[in-house]
Amino acid sequence: MKIKLSILALAVAMGLAAPAAAQEQIKIASSNWPSLQAMSSVLKEITEKYFGASAEVVNSTLPIIMASMDKGEIDILPEIWSPNHDSLINTYVKEKQTVKLGSMTFKSISGMCTTRHTQEKFGVKSIYDLSRPEIADVFKSAAGGKPKLWVGPAGWSSSKTELIRARDYGYADLFELTTVEESLAIVDLEQAIRAGTPWIGICYTPHPTFSRKEVVMLDEPPHDPAKWKVVQPDQNPNWLAMSSSTTAWAPISVNIAYAKELEAKDPKLVALLNNITLDPAEIAQWIDAVGTKKIDPDTFAKDWVSKNDAKILGWMAGKAQ
């Protein structure tokens, strides 16, 4: 206890923490994926413990969150993914300039995945294989109907991109493109791994389930910007007709975003947001804790922050950890 108090005292002495009376409430956004839920609660805990401010986590969808940041109603979005959310980045960061990007916390790779058992038994190796009716039939269930292919939750921008890719790669009409929440898709995938039954859907690193050796990403042409024309619903109601994509995802960058007004509201907190970096393996542990083990994000955050004082003070001081 004395060690923790001395570390906080050090932060105050360094001018990194501020008294609660001088702070307004900080509103931190969250949504429906576990790494963001964990990060939102971690930032809330850091804001309250090290900066002496009151903080609140606000749950919504990304378009609403970014519009609220534009109005100064939300201060921080701990994760915005590019190119997944490029339409929002273009609008609020580049055009309106009311939102700024902080540090890039980690990178991700996304693609279409199946189980290793499915690949080895049925020869499903390329994304083009999904356009073959005999391969699509592999994924049919005993219940009948079209086989199911998970494109991601309905609220994700990447799910819209996967609808475009399914159409342009030629397998959209062969599958029921499902948009259940990620937690349900993970349960289905884990059951398929245990039972040795086929599964197909979008996946991404550093998610621990998608990174298992039993899960493989299908081959597809390397990313070509000339073949990646993705329009999102927030840009145009005819987004699907205007879009085209027959190329792999570009490597994904995940950044913190914050309202420009926060620079005046709490410049020391902004300095922290520009210095946070996390190892992908650590993000995988966060996803496992909050997404798989269902640990409450606030409970997880209190534990993680209590064990990572040195790392947090390094972020506050502008030192890479």
Rank of each mutant, 00 (worst) to 15 (best):
I3W: 12
K4Y: 05
K4A: 15
L8V: 13
L10E: 14
A11S: 14
A11M: 10
V12I: 08
A13V: 05
A13N: 12
G15I: 11
L16F: 12
A17M: 09
A17L: 09
P19A: 10
N32T: 13
W33H: 13
S35T: 05
S35H: 02
L43A: 03
T47L: 04
Y50F: 15
F51K: 03
G52A: 11
A55C: 11
V58H: 10
A67N: 14
S68P: 09
S68R: 14
K71M: 14
P78S: 12
I80V: 15
P83L: 07
H85T: 10
I89C: 04
N90F: 11
K94Q: 08
E95G: 00
V99A: 07
K107T: 10
T114V: 13
T115E: 05
E120G: 01
V124S: 03
S126K: 10
I127K: 03
Y128L: 06
L130S: 05
E134N: 06
I135V: 15
A136K: 02
A136I: 03
D137C: 01
S141R: 15
G145E: 06
P147G: 09
K148Q: 12
V151R: 01
V151T: 08
S159A: 15
L163N: 04
R165Y: 05
R167M: 10
Y169S: 05
D173E: 15
F175Y: 14
E176A: 13
T179P: 00
E181V: 11
E182H: 12
E182L: 12
L184R: 12
I186R: 09
V187Y: 10
A192C: 12
R194L: 13
P198W: 03
P198V: 05
P198M: 09
I200T: 14
G201H: 05
I202T: 11
I202H: 09
V215H: 01
V215G: 01
L218A: 12
D219K: 08
D219F: 08
E220T: 04
P222W: 07
H223V: 04
D224Y: 01
W228C: 01
V231W: 00
P233I: 11
N236T: 04
L240V: 05
L240W: 07
S243L: 07
S244F: 10
P251G: 02
I252C: 04
N255S: 11
A257H: 01
Y258G: 00
D266W: 06
P267D: 01
L269F: 14
L269H: 05
L269M: 12
L269V: 06
A271H: 13
L272G: 04
T277G: 02
G291H: 09
T292E: 09
K293N: 14
K294P: 02
K294V: 07
P297G: 07
N308Y: 03
G314D: 14
G314T: 03
G314W: 06
G318T: 12
